[in-house]
Design a protein around this nucleic acid. Structure first.
Lengths: 257, 257
DNA sequence: CTGCTCAGCTTGTTGGTACAAGCTGATGCA
DNA sequence: TGCATCAGCTTGTACCAACAAGCTGAGCAG
């Protein structure tokens, strides 16, 4: 007989009931005091069980309101379609993506110059501490924080393309602007990782407990060397990244059905 | 004056000290009772703070031992190089990948036939509930659980390629076996998501609290239709997925330096 | 009818206690 | 020497109590 601790039993029962649909997304769970009676446990024990489910990302709590079952409609991000010359700019892709989903995009933007961290310098193949230009974007969908995007450009590149270091949008898109100045991006290397958010990330993305962030690092290359590095953070529960590789005519043919 | 709750202060101070390097990866934190004295807080409060750091994936605890700062060496997974005819089988890629990193691969394997879930049926473009063959792999590196991989084949495909439904490896690789029977995989569609593990996943991957899983769903297509769907789960803290897109000669040229 | 206050619900924070259970090293016996 | 035991550390589980703070609806004052 493998006796589980009581707080785990509480979590297990509630988890199964949520999976069953007894508590559909958006529904409120019974209050802590009700659960105390139901499971004949102290408040702390019930809270321990509930906090397990919170950290699994299944439910969330708010003071005064109670515990609510989270819903998760995911947003699809087609990463293999971004940033070619015909469909040039990240910002554009974001705007069209969001707008075509019938939602409202909104972003804040800033530019700064700072020494490259080891991580960035490594990817840009420059010496750590070298100055780099950071173009930073904080994106919202329907006023809900969606992603942060930090793009770093090495200083040698900025010397010949000074508008990168100026605040404000580059209307034609950075990729096109660079191409016009002889810097053509011909390939990129993507890295995708997941982890729990830092407090800073949790604040920017308004992430509650139990929600990981997706980290997407894209390093763009010209034929000669790396020209930029973009680090994007997403809420893991609301986003999914897609890559199309090879011939997918079979997929797109059947899609409209 | 924005007074943070005491347990958050505890977490913030320790988090900064960990980031500072006061407690390097592998080091043990002071015990709960020491922290009680240092922060003049009750044991519950200290534990609350520590559990925050645990759920951020920064530290882990074990009964009798204490709290330890986690290290995270990541394993790189080049997803855009898998599964073409020259380098055919997932299993092969895993074995060579792991062996070339100087580590020891080990896997368990099983085959079963079961009705397709909605998720699988949708991707394989068959009716939900149709029979599908599941080939399931549980992979270890140096006896540490690394990933679970479930590949589903639609029954119409299995009819013409019966070895898929038989237990035991297909030596030449499933991709090559299928190609020999006229089913050529010409493209695939990848979806990558992150979330907190289910208890089942946490058990299989021996994941502690605060570690998300990376979910990699790859649907393979012939020129006509989807032929398989592979769902792989990884420990998010130990793995990173890579995609190479376009021309990356600049990257590989400089790599050996 | 409008708008405010407040009782009464909810969860959040902090303190306390007690015992269970896992680990380690010292002690002491054979 | 070698092995078993156990004291004394660690975290894990479970209980209790009290007050803070956020939310909602009832009910009262204007």
């Amino acid at each position: 007989m493998n006796k589980q601790p009581k707080y785990r039993q509480v979590a297990d029962v509630l988890r199964r009931e949520i999976a069953n649909g007894d508590f559909p997304p958006g529904a409120r769970l019974p209050s802590e005091s009700e659960l105390q009676q139901r499971f004949d446990a102290s408040r702390n024990t019930v809270r321990n069980g509930l906090s397990l489910l919170v950290s699994e990302g299944l439910i969330s709590s708010s003071q005064g309101l109670g515990y609510e079952v989270k819903s998760h409609e995911v947003f699809e991000l087609n990463a293999s379609k971004f940033e070619n010359l015909n469909f040039p700019q990240n910002g554009d892709a974001y705007n069209t993506n969001v707008t075509s989903a019938g939602r409202r995009p909104h972003q804040t933007f800033r530019v700064e110059m700072l020494p490259a961290s080891e991580e960035i310098a490594d990817r840009l193949k420059v010496t750590a501490g070298t100055k780099a230009v950071l173009r930073f974007c904080h994106r919202y969908v329907d006023d809900v924080p969606w992603s942060t995007q930090a793009t770093y450009y090495p200083s040698w590149l900025v010397d010949g393309s000074p508008r990168l270091a100026e605040p404000g949008d580059i209307e034609e898109g950075t990729t096109r602007y660079l191409a016009a100045r002889g810097i053509e991006q011909v390939g990129y290397f993507d890295e995708i990782a997941a982890r729990m958010p830092t407090p800073e990330e949790a604040r920017l993305l308004e992430i509650g407990a139990g929600v990981p962030v997706l980290l997407w690092t894209r390093t763009g290359y010209s034929a000669e060397r790396p020209i930029r590095c973009t680090i994007t953070t997403f809420r893991g529960d609301l986003n999914r990244m897609n890559y199309e590789i090879g011939d997918l005519t079979a997929r797109s043919e059947n899609e409209p059905q």
